[in-house]
């Protein structure tokens, strides 16, 4: 028959209270663990990995027990699995692109250094009528005191060998870019 719904779900499936308290205790413990690990000073990628591992465990506990997924229809588990899979594909492929832009040509993977494109910022400021925009230029300039507004946005990055009209100013800006983090 097409509808399993006729058959199942006659009586509610009730879990004993200690299960709930036990899961809550485990969640608290894992929270304390991840909080404590953040003070250890692990290298960044390792810290990210550990934090994600702990968070995934917590998520599995909440989804499995609090959301009753372990005892639920298989279909509902499938829904969650498919949506998480779609999300991971989205992350994976987009990140793969962002990380491999400079694979063939290094300059293609280079975002403009923040100080080099101050002129770009000036040029692209939205019309003053827009709220919030009017302040943008001023405080931007104040924060990035190192930036000279004259540096040409047309200048090629140091990586690109091509000399450009503004190359003089461009390379002058390059040391300041040490604080910026344009490249991958």
């Amino acid at each position: 028959m097409a509808n399993q719904a006729h058959e199942n779900h006659h009586e509610p499936h009730v879990l004993p209270l200690p299960v709930y308290y036990g899961i809550f205790g485990a969640l608290l413990g894992l929270t304390i663990l991840t909080y404590a690990v953040s003070f250890v000073g692990l290298p960044e990628s390792l810290a990210l990995g550990v934090a994600m591992l702990v968070a995934s465990t917590k998520a599995a506990l909440v989804a499995g027990v609090f959301m009753h997924l372990i005892w639920d229809e298989k279909l509902n588990i499938l829904v969650l699995a498919v949506s998480v899979l779609a999300m991971l594909l989205f992350f994976g492929v987009t990140l793969m692109d962002e990380m491999s832009r400079g694979l063939i040509l290094p300059e293609e993977g280079t975002l403009f250094k923040q100080n080099e494109d101050a002129a770009l910022k000036e040029a692209a400021n939205p019309p003053p009528a827009e709220p919030g925009a009017a302040q943008a230029g001023g405080k931007g300039a104040k924060l990035k005191a190192a930036a000279g507004s004259g540096e040409g946005s047309a200048a090629a990055p140091a990586a690109a060998a091509a000399p450009a009209a503004g190359s003089g100013e461009g390379s002058a800006a390059a040391p300041a870019a040490g604080s910026g983090s344009g490249s991958r």
Partner: peptide
């Protein structure tokens, strides 16, 4: 669009 060659090929 400046997408990486690797991503484009896949």
């Amino acid at each position: 669009s400046s997408q990486s060659a690797l991503a484009g090929s896949i």
